[in-house]
Structure formats: C-alpha cells, structure tokens
C-alpha cells in the first residue's frame, strides 16, 4: 500500500544519544548526548523513558510550541509492552498511540501521522522512537556484563531517542510518499544475523514503492535502509538484483553510518528503532537542506522476533516501511 501526500511536512527533529553514538562518526550532529547509559536515572528502562520525554520537550522548545498544541503523539520502542513509550506518554499527557514494528517503528509512526495530517484529522503530530542498548541486551540477548563471544553478524542496539514534528505547515522537508510493507519470512532462524532476516522485507518494500509510484530507482538521489548492517547490505544488493532486477547504486544503510565499524566494537553495525531516524534527522535531513540531495527514500526494517518463538525453533518474520522525503526549493 502506497500513499502520496500533498501537504505534509516534517518540520523539525530532535535527537538524543548515548556514549557510543556520540563517539561515532555522526557524533557532532546530535542535539544532546549522554556520557553513560543511565542518563541520570536508576535503570535502563527509566533512562529510555527519560530520553523519550526529553526528546519531545526539546522538540517543542525548538519549535516554540506547547504540549497543548500537539494533537497526537505516536511512539514506540523495543521493550516488552512498550514500557519506555508508555511511561513517557504518562508524563507528557498528549493523546498517545503506542506502536511496535521493531526497528521499522519509526517509518510506521511517520506514515501513520502523515496520513492523519493529510486527512486534516490532526494539525500537529509528534513521532518519537527510542531504543536502549543495555535494555535491549537484557531483554533479547545476554546480561550486559556477560562477555560471552559474539558473532560478527551480531548488531549493536543504538541508544537514544529520535523525535520529529509532522504538520501541514510548510516548513522543513516534505513527506511526499510512503509505503506500508508486508511481512516477509525467508526462513532464517539466526537471531544473530538480523541483516539476513530483514533484507527480503526491505527489497520487497523498495520494489513495491517504486512500482506503485511508477518511479524508476534513479528518481531518488539516495535510498537508505534501516539497520541491515554491513553484511545485510550486501545481501540486500544481491537479492534485489536477482529477485526484482533493481540496481541499488546510491544506497547506504543507516546502521553502518552511525558507528565507525572498524574502530568501535559494534560488530555488524547498529540496530534498534532509533537507528534509522537518528541518522536521518541528524545527518540526512540537514544534507538535504543544504541541497546535497533532493529526494531520499528511507526504508526502516524490523525483525519481528520474539525470544519464545526463536526458542521454539520458528523462523523470524520481518517487515519494512518506506518514507519518501523531498526538499522543496521554496521552503526554509
């Protein structure tokens, strides 16, 4: 399913990160960075909720808006029952929808909000997604202090929160199209190779987006996938060529941009709901505003895994949602 929007804009963004992201190549572009994983709270879950609240508040301050000006807050994270988002929404008191699509949550939230803005059901909507490395490690993998060996294809969950304000006020970059992906499962069971799990869903969404909008792949100055990691990137390129005969030329993956893969000990690269929007908001959108790129397609990918299903030997389904962003010449 693909939507075309006429009058929806991503007005402003706010990004908050943890220490690893700060030390990465994009470190200087984020709005705020914490030196440790607790963010001044007692637990990682609290830290994640705090970064959510702080991100929304900072975004409102940047845009000189009040909480009462916001009609809808869409949020999501990786923790069970979306606790970080729920506890943050309790503090913020904005009408709230919590969504879960693993690492594809960001683009899903953006497209849901964009639909409501386009339909004039709401005026201003905020989309915030968070993830926390230690919180995710605790829930999905091993205790944080456990140093058992990890495979090279393992990804490293990004710590931080990424918020954006979407409205019909002509400001920032335009959200011009979006595609809701379908769940794909190519039979991969390996939880330590998420790139392989998610690449087919990503390819499927890119193909359907181009087909539904009647565009060639060159229409976009660049295509960015969410968090396939350095090996998932190569898998995607070969798969999309063989299956859909598409040549991904101007393509990169946000998971391999947020960290220095050779120097930082992050294995195959970043992951987590915050990975794709952090890179997009802090680095790609400013590049677009500087007219380095006019149109980009962001395809955030999510592995819909559950520890129980993995233990029961099920294969892992994946999903990807795409958002087309465009910078207009006549807006600031």
């Amino acid at each position: 399913m693909t939507f075309n929007y006429r009058d929806v804009y991503l007005n402003n963004t706010c990004t908050i990160v943890g220490p690893y992201e700060k030390n990465g190549p994009l470190g200087k572009y984020f709005d705020k960075a914490y030196k440790d994983f607790y963010f001044g709270t007692d637990s990682w879950e609290d830290a994640e909720a705090k970064s959510f609240v702080e991100g929304v508040k900072k975004l409102l301050k940047k845009e000189d808006k009040q909480i009462k000006d916001i009609d809808l807050l869409v949020g999501g994270d990786l923790l069970n029952q979306l606790v970080a988002s729920n506890y943050a929404a309790e503090t913020l008191k904005i009408p709230f929808i919590g969504i879960y699509n693993a690492c594809a949550t960001s683009t899903l939230g953006m497209l849901l909000t964009a639909n409501m803005v386009e339909a004039k059901q709401i005026k201003n909507g905020i989309v915030t997604v968070t993830s926390h490395n230690n919180g995710a490690e605790k829930q999905f993998r091993y205790p944080v202090e456990y140093g058992g060996p990890k495979r090279k294809t393992t990804t490293f969950t990004v710590t931080g929160s990424a918020s954006c304000l979407i409205s019909n006020e002509k400001k920032g970059v335009r959200i011009e199209s979006a595609t809701i992906g379908t769940v794909k499962n190519m039979g991969i069971k390996d939880v330590y190779h998420m790139g392989a799990v998610m690449a087919p869903a990503c390819a499927d969404t890119i193909y359907k987006h181009l087909k539904n909008t009647n565009r060639s792949i060159d229409y976009y100055d660049a295509i960015y996938s969410g968090d396939l990691g350095r090996y998932g990137k190569d898998i995607l390129k070969e798969y999309i060529k063989k299956e859909y005969n598409l040549d991904l030329k101007n393509y990169d993956d946000t998971a391999s941009m947020i960290y220095d893969l050779d120097k930082q000990n992050v294995y195959a690269g970043g992951s987590g709901p915050a990975c794709a929007p952090l890179v997009t908001y802090a680095y790609l959108i400013p590049l677009m505003k500087k007219k380095k790129m006019k149109r980009i397609l962001l395809v955030a990918t999510g592995a819909l895994m559950s520890q129980t299903m993995v233990n029961e030997k099920h294969t892992i389904p994946a999903i990807a949602h795409a958002i087309g962003l465009e910078v207009l010449d006549d807006i600031s």
Partner: peptide, 15 residues
Amino acid sequence: MEQKKYNEIVKKHTP
C-alpha cells in the same frame, strides 16, 4: 525466490 536460493546469497555474504 526459494528459501534455498536465498540461503546461498546469505551464506555468500556471511563472514
């Protein structure tokens, strides 16, 4: 694409 063929692509790009 069949799962088997996809597995070959994955294997090729897995370090």
